[in-house]
Design a protein around this nucleic acid. Structure first.
Length: 359
DNA sequence: TAAAATT
């Protein structure tokens, strides 16, 4: 099994044109709202992040006009990206500054302004293979940039061999026609000095899976929710039924899987029903929610964070709370972060007890 | 030879 991680990605700022307004939604003269300074796209979200967690994370920055975690229409699975539209352009700017690059589990999220939605920017993603192993991300961009504006580029690397290129990558152009031109110009061509020609084609659209691929993904997703191998006969039976029912049919929803796993007695939630509440002590007066997300996000699913503030000064009173969905992840976070030195302070981190009840 | 970027 080969683990693939890319660390080579360009952060393009899809900056809005013009300057940021001090307050409120921007209304143009024709009455339509201009979202260009408030609407963000968030990429590389962890697969298991929910709409609620998504809203909680971005809501910690400022008032949200609307937000949406984008899901597969059929399976309900997260597609790993979403949109957040703030009321105030300043909060959108703040969200980019504080949350772009945030590590959540195995992902590093990307927060940037959303480009205005249009058909011309869809299906502009290319899959490139046969690249010389010596070609880096910058070289690849240089090769493709003659055909248009590159939004993202990535070369897949094999982690077990210390990040050596697999000769495979992706290029997303701003416009589909730019991608088309790049295929015409580069598919089957040898880059300067390369021994072999490269292949350039449109990348598969993840939301247009075949029935078989969809089934495989469903099965893997469902199976992953069980804590171990499917020994128990009833679990196996239920899972098989689930998959049979979902394939070629009607009313499948991820709720079905959730209720099934609950019935099977796995994937327990915490004593509050909402997750495991963690008490974090010795935060600085300047601490805010983002620091809690940064500390706990890498350990697993975080549903909520809260910094307790003084009512009058609005400064942190030195403690806060974090809610995590899964016990194991919460326990790992506590084990790792209790005693952690944050600036000149040493944190105390534990499961919340009834004694620390006030919030 | 395949990672989740347009609601």
């Amino acid at each position: 099994m080969v683990t693939i991680i890319s660390t080579m990605e360009t952060q393009v700022s899809n900056g809005p044109s013009g300057t940021s307004m001090p307050n409120g939604p921007v209304i143009s003269t024709n009455g339509a709202t201009d979202d260009s300074k408030t609407n963000l796209i968030v990429n590389y979200l962890p697969q298991n992040m929910t709409q609620e967690e998504f809203k909680s994370l971005f809501g910690s920055i400022g008032e949200i006009e609307s937000c949406k975690l984008v899901r597969d229409k059929i399976t309900g699975q997260s597609l790993g990206y979403g949109f957040v539209n703030y009321v105030d352009p300043n909060d959108a700017d703040k969200a980019i500054n504080t949350l772009n690059g945030l590590k959540l589990q195995t992902k590093t999220i990307k927060v940037s302004y959303a480009r205005p939605s249009s058909a011309s920017i869809r299906d502009a993603n290319l899959y490139v293979s046969g690249l010389p192993k010596t070609m880096g991300q910058k070289d690849m961009e240089q090769l493709f940039s003659q055909y248009g504006r590159i939004i993202t580029s990535r070369i897949l690397v094999d982690q077990v061999t210390a990040g050596i290129s697999r000769g495979v990558g992706f290029i997303r152009f701003d416009k589909r026609n730019e991608a088309e031109e790049a295929i015409k110009g580069l598919n089957g061509q040898k880059p300067l000095g390369a021994a072999e020609p490269i292949t350039v084609k449109f990348a598969n659209n993840p939301s247009q899976k075949t029935g078989q691929a969809l089934l495989t993904q469903l099965y893997q997703t469902a199976a992953r929710r069980y804590t171990g191998p499917l020994h128990h006969q009833t679990q196996r039976f239920r899972l098989d039924n689930l998959l049979n029912a979902s394939y070629g049919v009607k009313r499948f929803s991820p709720i079905t899987i959730d209720s099934m796993t609950s019935l099977a007695g796995v994937n327990l939630t915490g004593p509050t029903g909402a997750g495991w509440c963690i008490f974090v002590y010795n935060l600085s007066p300047e601490a805010d929610e983002s620091v809690l997300w940064q500390l706990f996000g890498p350990f697993g699913a975080v549903t909520n964070v809260k910094v307790i503030r003084d009512f009058t000064t609005n400064k942190c009173k030195g403690f806060g709370f974090v809610t995590m969905t899964n016990y194991d992840e919460a326990a790992m976070a506590i084990a790792s972060l209790n005693g952690y030195r944050l600036g000149d302070r040493v944190l105390q981190v534990s499961f919340k007890t009834s004694k620390q009840h006030k919030a």
